[in-house]
């Protein structure tokens, strides 16, 4: 684990956050290595925004700890703040500012800020610098927000549902820009999404959140290799109790089982590879009493 510490972009340990009487997050322990593009998925209300806000220091933990790039995110120094870029939900901007004003804002408030690069990027996207932010389309606002976050050359980029409310073209363009930034700077990216479909081409790491707890996290390729869908005749002998069975779906004459690292329940079961979406849904549909201990197994301790 020590070698991993040096290489982790962020680590949380038993992280929990309570608002008034409700726990929005509980017992969250995860590690994301440097250079990854990690997706944080889960249904609405699962605690994704809370977790992301804890990562950038907008909230402080109620319990547990969080460490980003080796420091606590609540370290309120210019140095610490300049290493992390954040794109909040709905990509808020100062609506009365022009795009040029926003770039100037970025330059005035950051230690390093590549204003020229941001300007060229936005011009290439056809976004006029003299237009007020409030007059831009949703996709354009998202691109401007991204440009602001990327121009400060952070080591970690955190984005809260950046693709929500974007049309398919805007979504594709946004991801192109984001991946371009990863290719250029090697920045680690964590973004939340409640849509799983398009994640596999972009992400190599996934964290699944449900009801404030992490139900699955790890390197995507390894998780997919460790899991299998087994198709066989209908069986109801306590399949759900087996620790390696994530989910069993019974039809009239057959049963489909999502298993992890396990042999087939009996010979003759047809193994099939699992898609990322099926994997995530299988874990999300799991009843809560299975507990977090056995499911938040860290997978993907890649060198």
């Amino acid at each position: 684990m020590t070698a991993l510490d040096a290489d982790s972009a962020l680590r949380t340990d038993g992280l929990g956050k309570r608002f008034r009487q409700t726990w929005a997050l509980r017992d969250c322990t995860l590690t994301i290595p440097v250079g990854r593009v990690a997706a944080l998925v889960g249904p609405n209300g699962a605690g994704k925004t809370t977790l992301l806000r804890l990562l950038v220091g907008l909230l402080a933990p109620t319990r547990g700890s969080v460490e980003v790039l080796g420091q606590s995110p609540t370290t309120n120094t210019s140095q610490a703040l300049s290493r992390v870029g954040f794109l909040a939900q709905e990509h808020p901007l100062y609506r009365r500012f022009t795009v040029a004003d926003l770039l100037r804002f970025g330059q005035a408030c950051n230690l390093r800020f590549d204003r020229d690069l941001a300007q060229r990027r936005l011009s290439a996207l056809g976004i006029p610098l003299d237009r007020k932010a409030g007059a831009l389309s949703g996709g354009q606002q998202a691109q401007v927000s991204l440009a602001l976050a990327v121009a400060k050359r952070p080591d970690l980029l955190v984005l809260d549902e950046p693709l929500a409310s974007l049309d398919p073209v805007a979504r594709r363009e946004f991801l192109q820009s984001l991946m371009g930034a990863v290719a250029d700077d090697g920045v680690t990216v964590v973004f939340s999404s409640h849509v799983i479909g398009e994640l596999e081409r972009v992400c190599d790491h996934i964290v699944v959140l449900n009801h404030g707890r992490i139900v699955l996290s790890g390197d995507i390729e390894m998780l997919l290799a460790e899991h299998r869908m087994l198709l066989g005749p209908r069986t109801t002998n306590d399949l759900d109790r087996s620790p390696n069975v994530i989910e069993a779906i019974h039809a009239d004459r057959h049963t489909t089982v999502l298993v992890r690292d396990g042999a087939a329940p009996a010979p003759g079961w047809q193994p099939q590879p699992v898609s990322l979406e099926e994997l995530v849904l299988g874990y999300l549909r799991r009843p809560a009493h299975h507990g977090t201990g056995s499911t938040t197994r860290e997978s993907g301790a890649e060198a």
Binding site: R53, Q79, L81, N110
Partner: peptide, 16 residues
């Protein structure tokens, strides 16, 4: 209201 506080507080200027 507009959420821009999240923008303001995640640049490199300490809150105080």
């Amino acid at each position: 209201e507009t959420g821009t506080l999240q923008l303001a507080w995640t640049q490199a200027v300490p809150r105080m």
